[in-house]
Design a protein around this nucleic acid. Structure first.
Length: 550
RNA sequence: GCUCCGGUAGUAUAGCCCGGUCAAGUAUUCCGGCCUUUCGAGCCGGAGACGCGGGUUCAAAUCCCGCCCGGAGCACCA
């Protein structure tokens, strides 16, 4: 029914007449058997059974009103008080991606205007730049708000002169009561000369912390009390709380809405992309823009992003690292970019995940599986494969008739990457020794036939606590296939090297890797077959690796 | 409490503005099969969702109303 109307919209007005007709025909068709129906369709409309497949890379929805601006400008504006983590990924990647999509500009702006409560830390300015570079989101321009204080002062004075702002010297509590009652505080209607005078005194240090604040006039009747006459600049005792970059040079510091509001316009930002916790801030800043005769940029407020089991709260991360609960900013339990990088999670995977999630306003709780799936897809064709035996136990094979040479491809689809080669030479008694994983013990029951991958087939004769005895069976892979023997990986004793893998929960797995892992370098990512993807951290004699995922 | 948002399979997303090719598409996950010297990848098949209740309409994931649930904001933080 719907299909008919969709294809022939001119029939819609006659919907009532058509309904019984269609019902009758559908009824008739349904009396036929399924195969009968299929046959008729094949005879008359064979093309109807063709299903086409179109798979395309997911793209971002278009930016609102992008064509109204000569150049799209976005910005990412972190407070340098922590390293960046997955929670920031949405802002960064969306801003950067949209800027690229429209051949616009992507700005990095450090919002370091609170030397007291959210004190910036010098090391993070660079760490944030590094995180961005790793993600491939290099800013076109960079600003630091603590360098721009005089600019903010200039606008403050202008607003004070015009009577669009005032210096409020009320006790915070007294002001609160007034504003909640939708009444002006005593300072609000004082002449602007008085406010200019008070402003001087703020700058001269005659007011202590909390004694005076510049407020932007809004609407006292506004339904949301948080919007009414919001604070724009306050006094901070920078002798006691010096700013890490400019020390105690300034005593009056702008607040978020003032600095951010001014800068977005001053830097020509056309599209603000930030979390929805800033929704009220947009309402507040719109008053500032009105006073200044500016047009507010387009704003997109996306929802919060979480990932199961990981803290994405800066304060928790900072606290955990400072107290030594975490090994550092790159502790594998953390969802910071440095931690993800250490584990071998690629920027490409993060980017695809964020684009997949898009800019919508509802909150999302991501599952790691989604990230892993993208990462696996990126890594699988790229990285080489090796054997790593976790929880090793010794396997002795008896009756090995000759010397075998195993040549194993580094990657099954890329022969040009070469081989790992091992010569298995039996002792005089015909024995050969291997490391195999205790995890495969379930396959090692007595009498069971198993195949050592790319080598030969054996029959398990005896399983002891930390050793397995087996006898040589045959070489041909086909035998193993016929017997439906499990394929397990192995490391030849003597052609091995120790290896430790740090898991995402910071526990470690001890094991033995094949000798060919010598060619791995720090930062390489490898696939340990039947174990998972790992990033190599250290290789001096003993390998240290971090586990990404299966 | 007040002021705003939001709710499609386990997870994420498309569709909603402009009702009908939606008995809801895609990715991942899980389960089977094929292929393959990995439990990986690939291919094929299957499982699994419109928060609830009313209304409007020939027709509702889509429009309207009520409810439920979730989130954010309510700082001299960003």
């Amino acid at each position: 029914m719907g299909k008919v109307l969709a294809e022939k919209p001119e029939l819609r007005t006659k919907a009532k007449e058509i309904t019984p007709l269609i019902n009758r025909i559908v009824g008739e068709v349904n009396t036929l058997s399924l195969s009968e129906q299929k046959r008729i369709v094949e005879e008359n409309w064979p093309e109807a059974l063709q299903r086409e497949k179109v798979e395309e890379e997911k793209k971002l929805p278009p930016l609102p009103n992008a064509d109204k601006y000569p150049k799209v400008v976005t910005r990412f504006s972190p407070n340098p008080d922590c390293v960046l983590h997955l929670g920031s990924a949405r802002a960064i990647i969306l801003c950067h991606e949209y800027a690229r999509m429209y051949r616009g500009k992507f700005i990095l702006r450090f919002e370091d205007t609170d030397p007291k409560l959210k004190k910036p830390v010098l090391e993070f300015y660079d760490r944030i730049r590094e995180d961005l570079a790793w993600l491939g989101c290099i800013p076109d321009e960079e600003y630091i708000q603590s360098d721009r204080i005089p600019i903010y002062y200039g606008y403050a004075e202008k607003l004070l002169e015009n009577g669009n702002a005032y210096v409020c010297a009320c006790q915070p509590q007294a002001f609160r009561e007034k504003i909640l009652a939708k009444r002006p505080c005593p300072c609000r209607d004082l002449p602007s000369e008085t406010h200019m005078e008070r402003w001087r005194r703020m700058l001269d240090g005659e007011y202590g912390e909390g004694e005076a604040v510049v407020r932007i006039k809004t609407d006292l009747q506004h339904p949301n009390p948080a919007v009414r006459d919001w604070p724009a600049l306050r006094v901070i005792d920078t002798e006691r709380s010096p700013h890490p970059r400019v020390g105690s040079k300034y005593r009056v510091w702008p607040l978020y809405n003032f600095a951010c509001g001014l800068d977005d316009h001053l830097m020509g930002v056309t599209h603000i992309i930030r979390g929805k916790e800033h929704l009220t801030n947009m309402v507040r800043q719109e008053y500032l823009y009105r006073h200044l005769g500016w047009k507010y940029p387009e704003a997109i407020h996306y929802g919060r992003l979480k990932i199961v089991g990981a803290y994405l709260s800066k304060s928790k991360i900072v606290q955990g690292v400072r107290e030594g609960f975490y090994e550092g900013w790159d502790d594998p339990r953390l969802a910071t970019f440095v931690a993800l990088r250490k584990r071998g999670i690629t920027p490409a995977a993060i980017k695809r995940l964020i684009i997949d999630v898009g800019p919508k306003t509802s909150d999302v709780v991501l599952s790691w599986e989604n990230l892993y799936a993208y990462n696996r897809k990126t890594l699988d064709p790229e990285v080489d494969r090796y054997f790593f035996v976790s929880n090793p136990i010794q396997l002795t094979v008896h009756g090995v008739p000759k010397t075998f040479t195993a040549r194993i491809r580094r990657h099954p689809e890329h022969l040009e990457r070469g081989f790992r080669e091992y010569t298995i030479k039996p002792t005089e008694k015909g024995e050969a020794f291997f490391w195999v994983s205790k995890n495969d013990l379930k396959n090692l029951a007595t009498g069971r036939i198993i195949r050592l991958m790319e080598l030969f087939n054996v029959r398990v004769e005896e399983v002891k606590a930390y050793a397995v005895e087996a006898s040589f069976l045959s070489e041909a892979y086909e035998d193993a296939k016929r017997a439906e023997a499990p394929l397990i990986h192995w490391v030849s004793i003597g052609a091995d090297m120790p290896c430790r893998v740090v898991m995402p929960d910071a526990t470690t797995v001890e094991g033995i890797a094949e000798k060919a892992c010598e060619s791995l370098k720090p930062n390489d990512i490898a696939q340990f077959e039947r174990f998972g993807f790992v990033r190599i951290e250290k290789t001096d004699g003993k390998i240290l690796a971090y586990f990404a995922h299966k």
